[in-house]
Nucleic acid binder design. Structure first.
Length: 542
RNA sequence: UGGGGCGUCGCCAAGCUGGUCUAAGGCACCGGAUUUUGAUUCCGGCAUUCCUAGGUUCGAAUCCUAGCGCCCCAGCCA
């Protein structure tokens, strides 16, 4: 249905899907995005969300939003809420209803009993330290637990006692019985269930044993009839267990084939930011930022407040692609995607961020004119607005200099520039902090005389009398170095608040994106004005 | 030094059932044109080379062998 859209380039996952569809293994695909509700979603998750939902859309399938809530000690409803909000904001269609791993706890437990009775799992009563010790090393095979040979009836009653709260945390753990000597450490009898007398944010105190991710995830996928289960590279070693488990359960009649297939891709790495929940939590709790949704945070909630758009993120995901090679993407790619999108949707406005006064000495005192200003020069259909012009204007401090460097074509003594959409003015001097000019009355924009005078420079302005003063937040990157590792690398100038002068009529917009001409893209939200990203500036290189 | 992955232009990334590859595309970069945003847009340039070394073949980024480099795995986290 979106065939008219630019066909995205091929990638290895699409090839697998296309082959599965062609062979008839699946008639319809289903993917899923499975966050753990233990933090806010960040830019890295956006890649995964856009990938999973994007594939579903492209192939006419579906994608589930499923919370992997198997560890009650770390998870909270507040995180669930923020995640749902971010996923919706990204435009992902998950059918309106989020799913939860905890909804399958009963079934997972049933599967556990089956594994026990079929001799594929046992209750181990070693301490965590003993288990660790007996697991061995990379080069040293593990050794069997003393409890590995318990009878299935003993295992079953122990498992039930665990479930019924008869044992303390850590007293026992249910383990898969595979091979303690496997070269793949993940196959050395991985833990399936642990005792955790904790209250779960959804199931309350119903359970005191909780499934491990390793065990729960494949079952979640199978129950939901996921066809392609996409995850990041670090789970590659887990895939043999994923398949082992599912096949055992399918053999036992608990699951139907075809079983889901786990496919791994490289996670997103971005320069100038940290994308690990652990470090992000540190920033929040250490008070280095104003919370998870601080506009400088690489969270989706933060990105949104910064003025980043879902569409910009989509372009970004498309641009970086998907593969198994580790990617390190320069942050400027993301910024560029935002510019690309914002350039299309943001109406243009004038704002002076660092104001100094300009007086047109030969412009009649008290006179005012309304200038016709296009809302978007490349989109005449967006119409024009009228902006008041008068004798005293605010202009940008940077647009005047006493000693112009070579190639400078803004205001300097004797120089002529155009006040964008107004008149051409000639600079007569600078006294008492005020730039003094004279204007050429016949050069009003939109009149034939406008083209008679050619100027290089073109600067924006706001009439002093009509200006709307506002605090504008100029955001820059949170970290000053390319590969930050800790709070020491925070950029001290990541936020600067300036007293700006905006053209009238800009104050009461809600989550609206605008371009301040010659500055960049900003988002106005309930009186708060944030800079999303600057415009490209090839002059700044000089 | 066990197991699993990855290695194509500065950054991504197609290609990988061998020839149409003197290697697509994007971003960056460098020109040049348009422009009342030093923005946007436009046009042109940008890997005889595919981690290295051998081999197979009439022919290899694509197959084989041996190296080298990087990442991941020893939670009752996900």
């Amino acid at each position: 249905m979106n065939k008219s859209h630019t066909p995205s380039t091929s990638n290895f996952i699409k090839q697998i899907i296309a082959a599965d569809l062609a062979s008839g293994k699946h008639v319809k695909i289903r993917t899923r995005f499975p966050p753990e509700p233990n933090g806010y979603l960040h830019l890295g998750h956006a890649k995964s969300i856009l990938l999973n939902f994007g594939l579903a859309k492209e192939y006419g399938g579906a994608c589930n939003l499923r919370f992997d809530d198997t560890n009650p000690e770390k998870e909270e409803q507040a995180y669930v809420d923020s995640i749902v909000e971010s996923v919706k904001w990204l435009g992902a269609d998950f059918g309106g209803k989020a799913l939860y791993a905890s909804d399958y706890f009963d079934f997972m437990y049933q599967c556990a009993e089956h594994l026990v009775t079929s001799g594929n799992a046992y209750v181990d009563s070693q301490s965590a330290d003993e288990m660790k010790h007996n697991r061995g090393f990379f080069t040293k095979p593990g050794v069997d637990s003393l409890f590995r040979s318990r009878s299935s009836s003993e295992n079953l009653s122990l498992l039930r006692e665990m479930r019924d709260g008869k044992h303390a945390d850590g007293a026992h753990v249910l383990r898969a019985k595979i091979d303690m000597r496997s070269p793949n450490i993940n196959l050395r009898d991985p833990a399936l269930y642990r005792i955790k007398k904790a209250t779960h944010h959804r199931t309350g105190d119903k359970w005191c044993i909780y499934p491990m991710y390793t065990y729960a995830h494949p079952i979640e996928d199978a129950v939901e009839k996921i066809t392609h289960s996409l995850c990041t590279l670090e789970f590659e070693d887990q895939r043999p267990f994923y398949d082992w488990l599912l096949n055992k359960l399918a053999d036992g009649g608990l699951l139907q084939r075809p079983l889901p297939q786990q496919i791994e891709f490289a996670r997103l790495n971005l320069t100038h930011v940290l994308l690990s929940k652990r470090l992000l939590i540190k920033l929040v709790e250490g008070g280095h930022v104003d919370g998870w949704d601080d506009p400088r945070m690489p969270t989706l909630a933060g990105a949104r407040r910064r003025g980043y758009t879902a569409d910009g993120l989509r372009r970004f995901a498309e641009r970086i692609g998907v593969s198994k090679a580790h990617q390190m993407i320069d942050y400027s790619i993301l910024e560029d995607c935002m510019r690309e999108h914002l350039n299309e949707i943001a109406p243009r406005r004038m704002a002076v961020l660092d104001p100094i006064k300009l007086v047109i000495e030969n412009y009649p005192e008290g006179q005012e004119e309304l200038m016709d200003v296009p809302n978007h020069p490349q989109k005449p259909e967006w119409g024009k607005r009228q902006v008041p012009f008068s004798r005293e204007l605010w202009i940008e401090r940077d647009d005047y200099t006493d000693s112009p460097p070579k190639g400078y074509f803004r205001l300097a003594p004797g120089a002529t520039v155009r006040l964008r959409y107004g008149y051409a003015v000639k600079c007569e001097g600078y006294h008492n902090g005020i730039v003094r000019c004279t204007y050429l009355a016949e050069t009003r924009s939109g009149t034939p005389g406008a083209d008679a005078v050619k100027v290089k420079g073109n600067i924006h302005w706001v009439s002093v009398k009509h200006a709307h003063a506002a605090q504008v937040h100029l955001y820059d990157r949170l970290f000053k170095i390319e590969h930050p590792e800790s709070v020491e690398h925070l950029n001290p100038d990541s936020i600067k608040t300036v007293s700006a002068q905006l053209e009238p009529g800009l104050k009461d917009s809600k989550e609206s994106h605008v371009q301040f001409e010659r500055h960049g893209y900003f988002i106005c939200d309930d009186g708060r004005v944030n800079r999303t990203v600057t415009l490209r500036d090839s002059w700044a290189k000089h």
